[in-house]
Design a protein around this nucleic acid. Structure first.
Lengths: 343, 343
DNA sequence: TTAACGGCTGCATACGTATGTTTTTTGATT
DNA sequence: AATCAAAAAACATACGTATGCAGCCGTTAA
């Protein structure tokens, strides 16, 4: 016999007051007498009373919940989720609880119809969209969301004139900084793995930074040293294999992410190359593992902590209809051993 | 002017029927005429109607939501979440959506009062508890949950006679298998990093497997080769430094997790040792990164996919009050280069 | 003495759905 | 044409909370 949950009526009965007074007392309304409130709160504690969220949400028309939609192609047997998102998730969930919001997390395949299942059902007050991926695939959906008045914020490349709020790292500058660093170390034949094909705006921005650095140094971007790769170790391995098979020579690789870089180092080592003596390899993201990789990875740090906070705060601002602003998260060069010393 | 959301009354009005018929039609009740149902569903689609979850939950007394509580000490500026959990999270979220449940995710510090905030508020029908950590810290809380009739399932060491449902990997066998593997390769002075102090039952089980393998081989467990470590790279680095400083010699290290192992390899390399020639290093978990670490890590695979599924399915069974069963997830040895070849 | 007022509290209602109960409709049988 | 059962739809209500509004009481001012 599980004793059924206590309601505000139960408390009202014991306190000899009305339910409305209980509700007011528990929400610390100034309308209720100090003494009465103390008494009510004591009884609530005693009965282990908790506000029923469903009833409360129904009455107030908001849920106090944010939805985090993470877009990634997951295969059925394994869960390869980019640790970068895990880090974001940590920051997002922490900021949410600091602000009194709950977080509903859902991993979405690109194909599913996710556009309305969270906001329209009143399960969430707003949505955070996370995930690289083919921009064009969901641009239409985002417009739908805007049209419906759904509040959302998106992690990703900031494009001028978009009708929605995007928050992203300064990817171009990151790509620029790290490539310039390699150039300053004397590397000249610098390959690029990942994102040169403009499917993922984030990775493409990094590529543009890479190009800018090379052109600025008076050299030409060598198109034969560029291979596409998604953000996984396996893609890094494969891209290096293709690069090696092409027969072109190179003394450095800029990878569009740390995972690609780790795969690249693995494949290079396998093929008998020494990193960084033969080939310097750099990444992007500064995952925790970058520091402990062998050799430790020179990379670009995205401040996931700040990023997560900014996403949540801006979404909340949007929900509360106060002033919002698009923000760039700065990129910061982290130098470790994987690019060696000056030649 | 955002047009307010359509309700079942709006549909009823347009269809010329009552609200209750609409509700029944949309839930595919057999009580409603085929033709009427078609009509109602068409109108619902047209109006882009979605059931209000809060109202629905209030009425039905269940939320269709599971809560995932992840316990980990997070520091304020960085989010070091074990990738192992990310992998679990992936599997859990996928299984949830397959079963039609939403997932509420919350990272909890050990200290906060989490025990009732999800079930008692009717935000979730059940709770999944994830996280290593000091067992004794929350044993009291778990008993509270049981007493309140809260449905939950816990990832972790399965202890006979517990009044709650735990699902865990066969950690002892994993520790046994991998240690025996090292012994079979001729390693004799095998250190152990992490968990020998019985604070974390999972890690301690791995330690017991390690002891069993050594004793079975006719050797003695050398207590001077054992250092405690939490599941992070940094702890691995530090433990190796202490081990080296102690002056004792060793030719292999069993690490209680891959992250510890990665930290250990990093520290050993830094100190001028070659892995695996001087020292073999093995881990536990088979994180994605284990395959691409340098050298690739011999480790014990926990099937996170199966684990996540089992957690969710068993929790749902518990909610639906059908038969449940405690399950061990098997441990599997994965051999890679970090323990070298036979000496 | 009366009116006005502020501080508290209670009353009544609405949020949107799901479902037990009752009523109406339909179709078949006598 | 009358009866009846089954099918279909309508009616009524409850879930638990939050809140506009009205009412009461004690105090102060006119």
């Amino acid at each position: 016999m599980s004793k059924s949950k206590a309601t505000s009526f139960d408390i009202a009965y014991r306190a000899g007051v009305s339910q409305s007074t209980v509700s007011r007392a528990l929400r610390n309304s100034p309308q209720v007498n100090e003494e009465t409130r103390k008494k009510i709160q004591a009884i609530a504690r005693e009965l282990n009373y908790k506000v029923d969220k469903n009833a409360s949400n129904l009455r107030t028309r908001h849920s106090g919940t944010l939805a985090l939609l993470l877009f990634e192609e997951l295969d059925d047997t394994e869960s390869h989720i980019n640790p970068f998102y895990l880090s974001m998730l940590g920051s997002i969930t922490r900021t949410c609880s600091k602000e009194g919001y709950d977080l509903l997390v859902s991993f979405q395949q690109f194909s599913t119809d996710w556009s309305a299942d969270f906001a329209d059902t009143n399960k969430a007050d707003g949505i955070i969209l996370l995930g690289y991926g083919d921009y064009l695939d969901y641009e239409g959906k985002l417009n739908e969301l805007v049209e419906q008045g759904t509040k959302f914020v998106r992690w990703g490349a900031v494009v001028e004139g978009e009708p929605w709020l995007s928050i992203g790292c300064d990817n171009k500058n990151g790509g620029y900084l790290i490539t310039r660093h390699l150039l300053s170390l004397g590397r000249r034949s610098i390959a690029f793995l990942g994102g040169a094909d403009n499917h993922s705006p984030e990775l493409y921005e990094r590529y543009k930074g890479y190009c800018k650095a090379i052109e600025e140094s008076g050299h030409y971007v060598d198109l034969s040293l560029q291979y596409d790769a998604v953000t996984t170790e396996a893609a890094g391995v494969e891209a290096v294999q293709r690069l090696l098979a092409s027969g072109h020579t190179f003394d450095a690789i800029v990878c569009a992410s740390d995972l690609i870089a780790i795969g690249a180092i693995s494949a290079l080592t396998e093929a008998g190359f020494n990193v960084p003596n033969d080939v310097a390899v750099v990444g992007f993201d500064d995952l925790t593992v970058a520091k402990y990789s062998n050799p430790p990875l020179t990379t670009v740090q995205q401040n996931t902590n700040l990023a997560g906070q900014t996403l949540v705060y801006n979404l909340i601002k949007q929900i509360e209809e106060t002033e919002i602003e698009t923000r760039h998260i700065p990129a910061r060069l982290i130098v470790r051993e994987s690019c060696g010393a000056k030649l």
